[in-house]
Amino acid sequence: MRRAEDHPSRRAFLGAGATVLAAGLTAACEPGAARPDQRDAPPATTAVPPTGPHQAGITLPREAQPNLLVVVADVVDGTAVGALLAELGEAVRALASGTDSRSLGLPPGDLTVTIGVGPRLVRLADPALPGAVDLPRFSHERIAPHARGGDLLVQVCAGDAVVLSIVAAALLDQAGDRVRERWRQSGRRGSAVPVNQDFTAPRNVFGFIDGIVGPQTDAQQRRDLWLAGPPPVAGGTLAVFRRMELDLARFAALPVADQEAVFGRRRDDGAPLSGGTIAADPHLGAKTPDGRYLIPADAHLRKAHPNAAGVGLMLRRSYSIDDPAPGLLFVSFQNDIRTFTTTLTRMDNGDALLPFTTTTASASFLILPGFDHQHPLGATLFRQRSERVGAPTPTT
């Protein structure tokens, strides 16, 4: 096991160097960046504990940090998965506390790291567990083989954009030659807009407020977000990551009224076209005097609404991206993968938003339950640290 004081590998830092540079160039544009008259007063951040019943970076902090970096990797055959995850968990604890020398002296601030395992690793633990099934293919996809699926997710979020790549490089260094990176994506959230007194949502790349509907209360999160069982996954959740290129020029050329018809909400304040405020429940049956739906039949709000799809709530987040092309990284957390697949299948059938999108990367993961010093990351799934990827599955 590598120690925190070991020097980071040249390979890991070379792989992250370009992203560090990009993060530094864009940091001044982030919502938390200091204005010229505040250069000596960096924004205050509150540390987020990495341990607990759930991993950080999902509901903690309550308002997601503005910067994200996702790394998706494969685990090399022959790797002892339990030992790898336990080491990564210890590295996360050290990085979050600022005691790992590989953080290069940068304060962690509100850093969170969230780690998940893909379907192949879930099947290694138990093929019957949630997260063991690969995502199906959908329309409006142009995904290269290396950008579909993956064994290991590392999601890094922070208010300081420079922290992201340094932390990711440290974790890849910890994993060493036991993992091979598939793809990575950095992103940033738009400016936050109040939805109610306890909740805000950002604007997406299309200019609309995004992620308004989701499991916000503790009761909703117990029902739709966190896995209650089986015991090996209790406290975890399921995540979907989809990178999309967007036809921004064609969308921007639409009149505002047509843009609003695509989304089913007003662009300026996020209110549903059926009326009320941004927080109002959409009235999907409301019609004009001549019988037309106020929220059009093909509007994204109608097609993706959980009541219309007959599924639970998703905790949805979107991040704007510039590379490899202008677009967004869509992230959803839910305790039943059918919440996502049923919704997207319904959207495939005539959602007005989808023709403006092309998905170029897609993966799903079981987000591991929370961990602490006495309960290593991944120990509930991989009780035997010697259990190895690629080994024959035991028969009974």
Rank of each mutant, 00 (worst) to 15 (best):
M1C: 05
A4V: 14
P8G: 15
R10T: 14
G15M: 13
V20D: 13
A22E: 10
L25M: 07
T26P: 03
C29A: 13
P31G: 09
D37H: 13
D40F: 02
V48A: 05
H54V: 11
G57M: 08
L60Y: 09
R62N: 05
E63Q: 15
P66V: 05
L68H: 13
L69A: 01
V70H: 02
D74L: 14
V75R: 13
A80M: 05
A80D: 11
V81I: 15
A86C: 08
R93W: 01
R93V: 07
R102T: 08
S103V: 12
G105T: 06
P107G: 00
P107A: 05
T114N: 05
G118M: 08
P119R: 10
L135E: 13
L135N: 10
S139V: 12
E141R: 03
I143A: 06
I143E: 10
H146N: 13
G149D: 15
G150W: 09
G150H: 14
V154P: 11
V156N: 04
A158S: 15
D160I: 07
V163L: 15
V167Y: 03
V167Q: 04
L171G: 08
A175V: 12
V179A: 10
R182F: 13
R184H: 14
Q185K: 07
R188Y: 14
R189T: 10
S191C: 13
A192R: 15
V195T: 02
V195I: 09
Q197Y: 12
D198T: 15
N204R: 02
V205R: 13
V205T: 11
G211K: 06
T217R: 00
A219C: 00
Q220G: 01
Q220Y: 01
L225S: 07
W226L: 08
W226V: 12
A228W: 10
P231F: 07
A234M: 14
A234V: 11
G235Y: 08
F241M: 14
F241D: 09
F241C: 11
R242N: 12
R242S: 07
M244F: 13
L248E: 02
A249N: 09
R250G: 15
A252V: 07
A253Q: 14
V256K: 14
A261F: 04
A261R: 06
G264D: 02
D268R: 12
D269Q: 05
G275T: 01
G276L: 00
T277M: 07
P282D: 05
P282K: 07
G285S: 12
T288L: 00
P289I: 00
G291F: 01
G291V: 00
I295E: 01
A297K: 04
A299D: 02
A304P: 06
P306F: 02
N307L: 13
V311I: 03
L313S: 02
L315W: 07
R317V: 08
Y319S: 06
S320D: 10
S320W: 11
P324V: 03
P324F: 00
L329T: 09
F330S: 04
D336P: 00
I337E: 08
F340L: 00
T342E: 06
T343E: 03
D348P: 03
A352H: 08
L353G: 03
L353P: 04
L353Q: 06
P355S: 05
T358C: 07
A361K: 11
P369Y: 04
D372W: 01
R383W: 07
R385K: 08
R388M: 10
G390W: 11
T393H: 15
T396P: 14
